[in-house]
Simulated scan of single mutants.
Amino acid sequence: MIKQGLLNEFDYEAENTRKLLNSIPDSALDYRPQPQLWSVGQLASHIAEVYNWYDGTFNTDNFDMGTYSYDKGDISRASNIVEKFEENVKKAREILANSDESTYMNNWSMGANGQTFIGPAPRIAMVRSLLYNHLYHHRGELVAHLRASGNKVPGLYGPTYEESHGK
């Protein structure tokens, strides 16, 4: 029952993420509102990467970032980021669909080099926090970056101001 709720949200929010990533023009990829912040391209690539964390979250009790490896590919084009997102989201959905609900309350942690920096906490709490809420946080940042760079964004939970006012 919990899994079905997670799958429903996953599907709905993956579509929102898809709409947002597809709205990024190549001309915005290098934009960053402040020097210390990620660029639009880096942020979009990280959003796509979060879907690659499903295996380490659902299928291990300790996600070791010290041994984690991820090839983000060429992020110089928005279409490449969308392609990586599509690849990752497909795998993530399969992992979630095949997950064992009886493990959702098992303790889970994330660390590197012998140090734990997240958890231990029930896996389901980390799924909600690390995989879902973390993603939504970065999508919000991406929306702000795109708007600040003069680009339009799609409505994710209803029409945007521009959409509702014909602009």
Rank of each mutant, 00 (worst) to 15 (best):
Met110Asn: 07
Asp71Pro: 13
Asp74Gly: 09
Val89Leu: 04
Glu94Val: 08
Gly56Pro: 07
Asp71Tyr: 02
Asp74Lys: 04
Met105Ser: 15
Leu96Tyr: 01
Thr60Arg: 07
Leu96His: 07
Ser76Asn: 14
Glu83Gly: 14
Ser79Val: 00
Tyr54Leu: 04
Ser99Lys: 04
Ala97Ile: 02
Met110Glu: 12
Gly56Thr: 09
Asp55Leu: 02
Thr60Tyr: 01
Phe85Asn: 13
Ile75Ala: 14
Asp61Gly: 15
Thr60Cys: 03
Ala78Phe: 03
Glu87Arg: 11
Thr57Pro: 08
Tyr104Phe: 15
Ile75Met: 05
Gly73Leu: 10
Ser99Met: 08
Thr103Arg: 14
Asn107Ser: 13
Asn59Leu: 04
Tyr70His: 13
Asn62Glu: 10
Tyr70Thr: 08
Asp61Asn: 15
Asn107Asp: 15
Phe85Cys: 12
Thr60Leu: 05
Lys91Met: 09
Arg93Ala: 04
Lys72Cys: 06
Ala78Lys: 05
Met110Phe: 01
Glu101Ala: 12
Met105Cys: 05
Ser102Pro: 06
Met65Tyr: 10
Glu94Arg: 09
Tyr54Thr: 12
Glu94Gly: 14
Lys84Phe: 01
Ala92Asn: 08
Thr103Trp: 01
Val82Ala: 09
Ser109Phe: 01
Glu94Trp: 00
Ser109Trp: 00
Asn80Trp: 00
Asp55Met: 02
Val89Ala: 10
Ile75Leu: 05
Ser99Ala: 15
Gly66Pro: 11
Gly66Tyr: 03
Ser109Leu: 04
Lys90Glu: 11
Glu94His: 05
Gly73Ala: 14
Asn98Phe: 00
Ser79Leu: 01
Trp108Ser: 11
Gly66Ala: 12
Glu87Pro: 04
Lys84Arg: 10
Asp64Gln: 06
Ala78Asp: 06
Ile75Tyr: 02
Glu101Val: 06
Asp100Pro: 10
Ile95Thr: 14
Tyr68Thr: 07
Arg77Tyr: 00
Ser99Ile: 05
Ala97Ser: 15
Met65Trp: 06
Met105Ala: 14
Phe63Val: 04
Ser99Leu: 08
Arg93His: 04
Glu101Cys: 07
Val89Pro: 11
Asp64Ala: 08
Tyr70Arg: 13
Gly73Cys: 10
Lys72Met: 09
Asn62Ala: 14
Glu101Pro: 08
Glu101Asp: 13
Phe85Asp: 11
Ile95Trp: 01
Gly73Ser: 12
Phe63Thr: 09
Ile75Gly: 12
Ser76Tyr: 03
Ser109Thr: 07
Ser79Trp: 00
Thr67Met: 04
Met110Asp: 08
Asp61Val: 04
Ser109His: 05
Ser76Lys: 09
Asn80Phe: 01
Tyr54Ser: 15
Asp61Ser: 15
Asn98Asp: 13
Met105Glu: 15
Asp64Asn: 13
Glu87Val: 04
Glu94Thr: 12
Asp74Val: 03
Asn62Lys: 11
Lys90Gln: 10
Ser102Cys: 08
Glu83Val: 02
Thr57Arg: 07
Glu83Ile: 00
Phe63Arg: 07
Asn80Ala: 10
Glu86Pro: 05
Phe58Pro: 14
Thr57Trp: 04
Phe58Glu: 14
Asn80Gln: 07
Thr60Asn: 11
Gly66Met: 08
Phe58His: 11
Asn106Gly: 05
Phe85Trp: 03
Asp100Val: 06
Phe58Tyr: 11
Tyr68Glu: 13
Val82Glu: 09
Asn88Ala: 08
Met110Ser: 13
Val89Asn: 06
Asn98Lys: 11
Thr103His: 11
Asp61Met: 10
Ala97His: 05
Ala92His: 02
